[in-house]
């Protein structure tokens, strides 16, 4: 492939990932290939058994600035443009069909990174948009799964329910943080 053709291909790959990210969608290498072929862009790519074109695309993607790979729950890498689709949001999208994992990992990352417990209503709102009964069922499932025994809840004095991970927050501190967050609207 000539240098000019390689540049065109890289640009086409970049555009494809950006289009997907702008539409809030993660995209895998085989989907990128499919779109490129449909547009007649990737005709010069070698085909099996000579070489795996997806591997070539992966190499191209690795060199594109601002494009990140995420090891998805399905086990394959998916790609997104960090400027259009942040890592945090990409993870949420990836886990959307696995409610228990979505909740557990979101709770863990909040407990670890900020640190803070999160109000259970967080998951009823955009972009989670889960029904209260779906959340309740998922939390029940988590409580029975050995892998998620760190996910737990607390209730503030005013009755608000917060979720946190005991891997990163001790209950006493989580209670303090939850009470404090619940009081912020009265402490302007």
């Amino acid at each position: 492939m000539s240098e000019a053709n390689a540049d065109d291909l890289a640009q086409a790959v970049l555009d494809t990932v950006r289009e997907a990210s702008a539409a809030m969608r993660l995209i895998a290498a085989d989907e990128i290939l499919e779109q490129l072929l449909a547009r007649g862009v990737a005709t010069q790519l070698p085909t099996p058994p000579e070489a795996n074109p997806c591997l070539l695309l992966a190499a191209i993607l690795a060199g594109l600035p601002g494009i990140a790979a995420l090891n998805s729950l399905s086990g394959r890498p998916v790609y997104h443009d960090l400027a259009l689709l942040s890592r945090t949001y990409a993870r949420i999208l990836d886990r959307k069909d696995a409610t228990e994992v979505l909740l557990a990992e979101e709770i863990r990352s909040n407990s670890r990174d900020y640190p803070r417990p999160v109000p259970v209503e967080l998951f009823e709102k955009t972009p989670f948009n889960l029904a209260p009964e779906t959340i309740a069922a998922a939390l029940k499932t988590l409580s029975c799964d050995q892998e998620f025994q760190d996910i737990t809840s607390l209730t503030t004095a005013a009755g608000a329910v917060y979720l946190f991970s005991t891997l990163y927050l001790k209950r006493g501190y989580a209670v303090f943080l939850a009470e404090q967050e619940a009081s912020l609207a009265g402490n302007p």
């Binding site: 259009l84 689709l85 803070r116 967080l122 912020l184």
Partner: peptide, 20 residues
């Protein structure tokens, strides 16, 4: 709340407006 453009979010933030 999480948004596509932001790496971080905070349920206690006063930036509460969002599409919808």
């Amino acid at each position: 709340f999480p948004t596509p453009q932001a790496e971080y979010y905070n349920p206690a933030s006063r930036w509460i407006g969002q599409p919808g």
